[in-house]
Simulated scan of single mutants.
Amino acid sequence: MPLPSSSSSSSSSSADGLRSIGELAEQAGVTVKTVRYYSDQGLLPEACRSAGGHRRYAPQASERLRLIRSLRGLDLPLPAIRRILDRDGAPGSVDQDALDDAVARHLRELGSQMSALRWREAALLPLRDAAPDERADRLRLVGAIATPPDTTAMARFWRRWLPARLPARVTAMIIDHAVPQPPDDPTPEQVLAFARLHAFVTGNCPGDNLDECQPAVHRPEEGYRPAVLYDGLVDAYALASTQLRARRTPEPGEALDCFVDAYATSRRTGDTAPFRRALHGQLASDPRVDHYWQQVAAIRTPGSGASEPTPGAAHDWLTEALAADIGLSAA
């Protein structure tokens, strides 16, 4: 069978050192169509055209073609390959900076894709293992989050939950501590916890009335200073976390005093027994976000191992310590 016309007509002039498109394709182990495509894309320049209009390539084109194939084998896109090859005139070399940038960018993209696949796998396992009467609920939960998931809804929840006049720096600090980052390689339990957390924050405060979203302790009388409150709560939670790590029962002490003082100072009043009783009643009557912090703990620490206390756990410990203090005072 005769060769394609482009190869047969060009091979007769191979003595000039140039290669026909067919010769180049055969040498590189690719099809003529592949060589023509890379030429049309500007990746494989022609040396000239024959009298009959056929493409002619310099001997160095075979090395450039091998480089193109190697880069395509890494699944790098054509624009990236063009930048890598076009910045250097030597046919067998590449622009190292452009190559580094392309590899780094491709690794980031692959990492994101792999993270999405790991989340999808971890989301499918609870569906596979669930009892028939649980599957619909689990499907609703895991189907509502993106893969890989983001934390936009959690951050939005905290911006609505926190006092409106809180300084931006304090709000940013609280959100940074309160919003868990999705693990790169989640367990099925972590996926379910993240899905439950997402359902909680997206189902909370459906209206635009902030009074429905914020707890009563964020809406006290005129003169309330929210920045003072949260600066003090940071210290109180740190002290309570020490008690939690030591597995101490909630009780009056330095941590509780710091906790109460934060509320009292923010309202320009003193720490008295009546104030403590009123504060406990206010905290107990407000909607709590215990469910939120339970899911955060499950996301951050899979399995049954000990975890770093969350701000929610510290708050619970201090509230119980306040209740114990009121009981002792009343006695």
Score class of each variant (00 low, 15 high):
residue 168 A to P: 00
residue 194 F to R: 01
residue 191 V to S: 02
residue 116 A to P: 01
residue 169 R to T: 14
residue 220 P to W: 03
residue 204 N to H: 14
residue 144 A to H: 06
residue 159 R to M: 12
residue 212 E to G: 02
residue 140 R to A: 15
residue 179 V to W: 02
residue 198 H to R: 10
residue 164 A to N: 05
residue 150 D to M: 05
residue 204 N to A: 15
residue 135 R to A: 13
residue 133 D to I: 00
residue 179 V to M: 09
residue 112 S to R: 13
residue 146 A to N: 12
residue 215 P to M: 13
residue 185 D to G: 04
residue 152 T to F: 07
residue 193 A to K: 00
residue 214 Q to L: 08
residue 210 L to I: 10
residue 115 S to F: 00
residue 179 V to Q: 04
residue 225 R to H: 13
residue 165 R to S: 15
residue 209 N to R: 13
residue 187 T to K: 08
residue 181 Q to W: 11
residue 118 R to I: 00
residue 126 P to E: 05
residue 192 L to G: 01
residue 147 T to I: 03
residue 114 M to Q: 14
residue 124 L to K: 10
residue 142 V to Q: 01
residue 180 P to L: 05
residue 218 H to L: 03
residue 132 P to T: 01
residue 129 D to H: 07
residue 216 A to F: 12
residue 183 P to G: 04
residue 196 R to K: 13
residue 106 H to K: 12
residue 147 T to G: 00
residue 192 L to Y: 04
residue 185 D to W: 10
residue 200 F to L: 15
residue 136 A to E: 14
residue 225 R to I: 10
residue 200 F to H: 11
residue 176 D to L: 06
residue 169 R to K: 13
residue 128 R to M: 14
residue 105 R to I: 00
residue 217 V to P: 00
residue 153 A to N: 08
residue 104 A to V: 06
residue 186 P to H: 02
residue 193 A to Q: 01
residue 176 D to Q: 09
residue 163 P to R: 07
residue 206 P to N: 06
residue 132 P to K: 05
residue 170 V to L: 11
residue 218 H to M: 10
residue 214 Q to T: 12
residue 191 V to C: 06
residue 125 L to V: 10
residue 179 V to H: 02
residue 225 R to Q: 15
residue 205 C to K: 13
residue 107 L to A: 11
residue 228 V to W: 03
residue 138 R to G: 00
residue 214 Q to H: 01
residue 160 R to V: 02
residue 123 A to P: 02
residue 175 I to P: 01
residue 102 A to P: 09
residue 117 L to S: 05
residue 226 P to E: 05
residue 222 E to P: 07
residue 152 T to M: 10
residue 162 L to A: 05
residue 137 D to E: 14
residue 179 V to L: 07
residue 200 F to G: 00
residue 216 A to T: 13
residue 175 I to Y: 03
residue 229 L to D: 06
residue 229 L to F: 07
residue 211 D to A: 11
residue 166 L to Q: 08
residue 161 W to P: 02
residue 172 A to Q: 05
residue 168 A to R: 09
residue 225 R to V: 09
residue 108 R to D: 07
residue 169 R to V: 14
residue 226 P to T: 02
residue 219 R to K: 12
residue 189 E to A: 14
residue 203 G to E: 08
residue 151 T to R: 10
residue 149 P to W: 00
residue 181 Q to H: 14
residue 176 D to W: 06
